[in-house]
Every structure is written in C-alpha cells, then in structure tokens.
C-alpha cells in the first residue's frame, strides 16, 4: 500500500461511507434481488446496469478459509507479520476478504464471526472478530 491508500470511486464511495459509520453494506439488485460484493455496477446474475441498492449487512458471518502471512510481500505489512487474512461469508451470502482480530491459533474454517470495523490507511476496513 502506498500513502494514498485505497482508491475510492463513485461506485465504491457508499460502501466506504457505510463502513465509516460502523456498518457493512452489500449490493442488492432491484431487478432480481441478487446480492453481491465486491462492488460492481452490473448485477453478476441478471446483468442489470446501475440498478441496485446498498443493503446494510447484519455483520454476522463465518470463515470460509484463512491463511497466515509469514512474509511481508508488501513492506507496509512488515510490522504485522505473522498476520492473518481470511475469506468471510456473510449471513446474507456475499463474501469478502478480511483480517480477523483474534490470535491466529484460534482461527478455524467455519468459525462464526462478527463485524469489527477497523480504521486503517484512508478508510475503515470491514475486519471481523470471533462472534460473542
């Protein structure tokens, strides 16, 4: 990551604004009700263009898979090694990449997690922690 952080576009601004307010949102197609992340302006199911709403997620989900980086491919992460990266599937269906705020040895596939937004770089990231 460089100094400029995450690139925010007209498309993704509602997503990052929602997270800044402590909520994670996903897109829902007005035409077919399909739900998805990451942000795109076309529905991956019915291909409708610019015809979606941003829907607040419950913040609940589970771990699909996870890894621990022992090498910092990006120098910006050198101080974090060893750090985890996980794929989380939201209760509503969409999936996203994330970091889990828990010791690496406590992570397993299927672990129930809750949203734990974390300010980092120029945004608030949708990180997760084990469900309480």
């Amino acid at each position: 990551m460089d100094e400029s952080g995450i690139e925010i576009t007209e498309l993704t601004k509602p997503y990052w604004d929602s997270l800044a307010g402590g909520k994670l949102s996903f897109q829902t197609c007005r035409a077919c009700a399909h739900k998805w992340l990451p942000a795109r302006d076309t529905c991956p199911n019915c291909l409708a263009l610019d015809d979606y709403d941003w829907t607040p997620a419950s913040g609940r989900g589970h771990v699909v898979s996870w890894v621990v980086y022992h090498t910092a491919f990006d120098p910006a992460f050198k101080a974090r090694v060893p750090y985890n990266v996980a794929i989380v599937e939201l209760a509503e269906g969409p999936r996203l990449i994330t970091n889990l705020a828990t010791p690496n040895e406590t992570i397993k596939v299927g672990l129930a997690v809750d949203l734990a937004p974390e300010p980092r770089f120029n945004v608030t990231l949708p990180c997760f922690k084990p469900a309480s």
Partner: peptide
Amino acid sequence: SEAGAFGWA
C-alpha cells in the same frame, strides 16, 4: 488496492 489494505497479496 482494497485487497492490499488487508495484506492480501
């Protein structure tokens, strides 16, 4: 850049 923010490289 979003992936990079999580160290997903």
